[in-house]
Design a protein around this nucleic acid. Structure first.
Lengths: 214, 214
DNA sequence: TACATTTGCTAACGGTGTTAGATTTTTTGT
DNA sequence: ACAAAAAATCTAACACCGTTAGCAAATGTA
């Protein structure tokens, strides 16, 4: 007759506990690496991020970092994913404020703008290397999911106004270009021109929505 | 009585010749450095450019490069300047095809687009770090002169249609954002979607011009 | 306790930008 | 023509970087 107590005393259970602790410790180490990396990026920028500094920060030797990430790019990719998750969340919140797709798109535009400046480090990473509308980037689920929020809203506008000549994908492309361009031109240097550029943003978005209608 | 021959035989003249040759050699070396650097960038991309490889290519030791350029950034800045000179030329040629500012701006837009893809290496450099509408970049005369071509044309459109509510600088900003955004989203990866994106470009520009009118 | 496994470290390889100091070449003044 | 001054050039180093092979120590298993 096997009781629960028997099981709890068994080697098998003890080994499970060890395995679980090890698993937990692995995850903690991974988290510590990411945390240290993020701190470095926040303090000194992406360009200053190095494996050696991460190792220093977590008080372990360099190869330990390589036990948790294949290479430096893998660490960066992790932040890339996280960045798109955050952006997606913000865009969805913005979108949910309204029911009409026109208003939703405007909210998405300003949400995107706000994210770019509130999370400069993330944005720089997300849009510096590859820009997320090309095929290669779309293979990353987090990127795709985020972009779908925008693309879907644009499609709704086009459908709403029954504009048969507007191609949803091309319009999506154009929208992303507009906003990204505006952000990328303003994200360097002090953000004191914020007020002026919000005007440009509104102007561009309203112009874009007009273009979707007719 | 001093003759020309006397002067040609004088120490002073000989020394002048030496100084001139040295000057010429300096310039040749500088040119060789830039040429070698450009070849490297063209073959392996900006990320692969290194002082050591340049030194190898010109068959001199590393510090020689530092005799002609303060550091690596100075070399890159040189290409930045040259890039904006080239872009300016191309935009001016495009502009000169028409007399009406509307048409001129459209030509500028496609000229900009063509430049970005024909001179990928230059464009990547010019718009990767700082984007040229912020103050710091505008301090470089070549950048400023190039942007002025665009800014001036937009101002002409606004003047032409007597639109008192359109701010020329903001519109310029918006235009640059649009075009740069569209380019930056397409410049990575194979350029097979060229046809589609020319449509987006035309669409964005015509929408923009409309926005300048009313 | 003896063995096996996991974990972490040292030390290296080849690369980068940059520079101090020695060396060789060229120019100058006698 | 020859020694001194100046210019050009190189060697070798410093302090970083990403990455990895191989060894030592801690830990788990029997």
């Amino acid at each position: 007759m096997l009781t629960v107590l028997d099981f709890l005393c068994s080697d098998r259970y003890i080994r499970m506990g060890i395995a679980e602790r090890k698993q937990r410790q692995r995850e903690e180490m991974r988290a510590a690496i990411l945390e240290a990396a993020w701190k470095l990026v926040h303090e000194e920028g992406w360009q200053a991020l190095s494996i050696r500094k991460i190792a220093d920060a977590i008080e372990y030797s360099v190869p330990v970092v390589y036990d948790h990430f294949e290479n430096k790019d893998a660490i960066i990719a992790e932040f890339n994913k996280k960045g798109f998750q955050l952006l997606r969340k913000q865009l969805q919140v913005a979108r949910a404020q309204f029911t009409e797709p026109d208003q939703q798109l405007e909210a998405i535009g300003t949400g995107y703008w706000d994210f770019a400046f509130a999370q400069k480090q993330y944005y720089q990473l997300m849009f510096s290397l590859g820009v997320p509308s090309c095929e290669s980037a779309r293979k990353i689920p987090e990127v795709s999911a985020c972009m779908d929020v925008i693309q879907h809203t644009i499609k709704q506008i086009i459908d709403k106004y029954r504009n048969r000549y507007a191609d949803p994908f091309l319009k999506f492309h154009a929208f992303l270009s507009m906003i990204h361009g505006l952000v990328s031109i303003n994200i360097i240097g002090p953000a004191n021109k914020d007020e002026l550029n919000r005007l440009v943003l509104k102007d561009l978005i309203s112009g874009f929505i007009k273009g979707c209608k007719a």
